[in-house]
Each structure stands twice: as structure tokens, then as C-alpha cells.
């Protein structure tokens, strides 16, 4: 991680806030997908390659998530932004593992913070029950804007915390090259296990499983021929 300029850090926090909002609240344009969040964060931090390497890694984890109903899941958006900041301007083979550790811990924390926001939304609604029962449109609008503000603060706080941790790790967590490479290999292996596990679960035993197998065969052949 290079010492980020104040402008870059500010832009990363702004980007982390936007991707934090995008996950659930608004506009769900998929900028919260790690591959998008990571690439743009890499560009903002001045290292697109690092952004892509981290973004693709977290995307493999995110493909294991099916956000249906009230299911609880990690928030990979701000986590990816912070992990990219840590990995920027270092050889990815040695920085990816530590960045993955930071990002995954933040993603879990992000998932937890999402529950807090949802509970705070419920409490706000309970306070406004009488106004909602009276059909006051202004109460609906105020609840909506209040909830969006809460989620924006959540995304900003998560990104700020992530950047602070990234700065601390870059400064104080010294790893020898073999340990750093080992962490990268473990992170890549685990990410592959996440996407394979998720794909198998999603495919079930029907025709989708056959299509998954056919795709894997084509992918293997293409990788071998490159």
C-alpha cells in the first residue's frame, strides 16, 4: 500500500459509500459487485491490476451468495475497496493473501452492520407507527430518507475503518515472502472452493448441472490452449 493522497483516500471513501449503498438500498446497479468495486478502487488508488486481482478474488466469494429473502450475507463492496487499497502498488502474488484476510474480515463486519441498520430501520418505523396508520405520506418519505442516510453512514464508516486497518497492516504487519505467497495461495484456493461450492449448490441435480460441467470442460480446454 502506498501512502494514499488525501484526495485518493477521500475518493475511496466516497466510492466505498456508494458501493455500500448500492448493495441493498439504492440504486442496486451492481457497482457493489466486487469485480466492479475493485477495478474502480484500483483505478482510484492508482493500480488497476491490484484492483482487478482483488476484485475477481472477492467476486468468487460473492458468487457463493444468493441474496434471497431475509438471508444474511457478507457485504463485499466496502471490504473490496479497503482490500484494494492495501494491495495497491505491491506485487499481487505477495499482497493478495493479506488483502483477502482484511477484506473478508471487513465483509463479515459489513454483513453484521447491515443487520444493525435493518434493526434501526425497524425501530424508526415503530416510532412512526401512528403517522403510518394515519396515512401520512410525509412519514413514509422521512423514514425512507432516514434509512438511506443510515446506510450511507454505514458504508462510509466501513470504508474508513477498512482504510485505517489497511494503513496499519501496511505499516506494521511484516510478512516474509514465503508466508505472503502462502497466504495468497490459500486465499485463491478458498475463493475457488467458494465459487465451486456455490455453483454446485445452485446447479442442483438438474440440467443446469450438466451445463455447469460442459462450461467447466470448455473453460479447462481454453485455459490449456492459451
Amino acid at each position: 500500500m502506498t501512502d494514499l493522497s488525501a484526495t485518493s483516500a477521500l475518493l475511496l471513501v466516497l466510492w466505498g459509500t456508494l458501493v455500500g449503498l448500492d448493495l441493498v438500498s439504492v440504486p442496486q446497479a451492481m457497482i457493489a459487485r466486487p469485480v466492479i468495486a475493485g477495478t474502480v478502487a484500483g483505478w482510484l488508488a492508482g493500480d488497476i491490476e491490484a484492483g482487478l486481482r482483488v476484485g475477481v478474488l472477492f467476486e468468487l466469494f460473492a458468487l457463493d451468495v444468493l441474496p434471497v429473502g431475509a438471508v444474511r450475507y457478507p457485504d463485499y463492496g466496502p471490504a473490496t475497496v479497503a482490500a484494494v487499497a492495501l494491495a495497491a502498488d505491491s506485487p499481487w502474488e505477495f499482497s493478495l493473501g493479506l488483502s483477502a484476510a482484511l477484506g473478508l474480515a471487513l465483509a463479515v463486519l459489513g454483513g453484521f452492520s447491515l443487520q444493525l441498520v435493518r434493526r434501526a430501520n425497524a425501530r424508526a418505523i415503530q416510532h412512526r407507527t401512528a403517522a403510518l396508520a394515519a396515512g401520512e405520506s410525509s412519514a413514509i418519505r422521512q423514514l425512507q430518507y432516514g434509512s438511506l442516510a443510515r446506510d450511507a453512514v454505514r458504508g462510509a464508516a466501513l470504508t474508513l475503518l477498512g482504510l485505517a486497518c489497511a494503513w496499519g497492516l501496511a505499516r506494521y504487519a511484516w510478512l516474509d515472502r514465503s508466508t505472503a505467497l502462502g497466504l495468497t495461495l490459500v486465499a485463491v484456493g478458498c475463493a475457488l472452493s467458494a465459487v465451486i461450492g456455490g455453483a454446485l449448490r445452485g446447479a442442483g441435480r438438474g440440467p443446469r448441472l450438466r451445463w455447469l460441467g460442459a462450461g467447466a470442460l470448455v473453460g479447462l480446454l481454453t485455459a490449456a490452449l492459451r
Binding site: 458468487l63 475457488l192 465459487v195 465451486i196 455453483a199 445452485g202 446447479a203 443446469r208 448441472l209 451445463w211 455447469l212 460441467g213 460442459a214 462450461g215 467447466a216 470442460l217 470448455v218 473453460g219 479447462l220 481454453t222 485455459a223
Partner: peptide, 10 residues
Amino acid sequence: GFVVGAAIPL
């Protein structure tokens, strides 16, 4: 399923 299957090895 097909596209994700192809993406994994690549």
C-alpha cells in the same frame, strides 16, 4: 451454469 463453469478454470 455454463458461463460460471467456464469461468472457474480460467
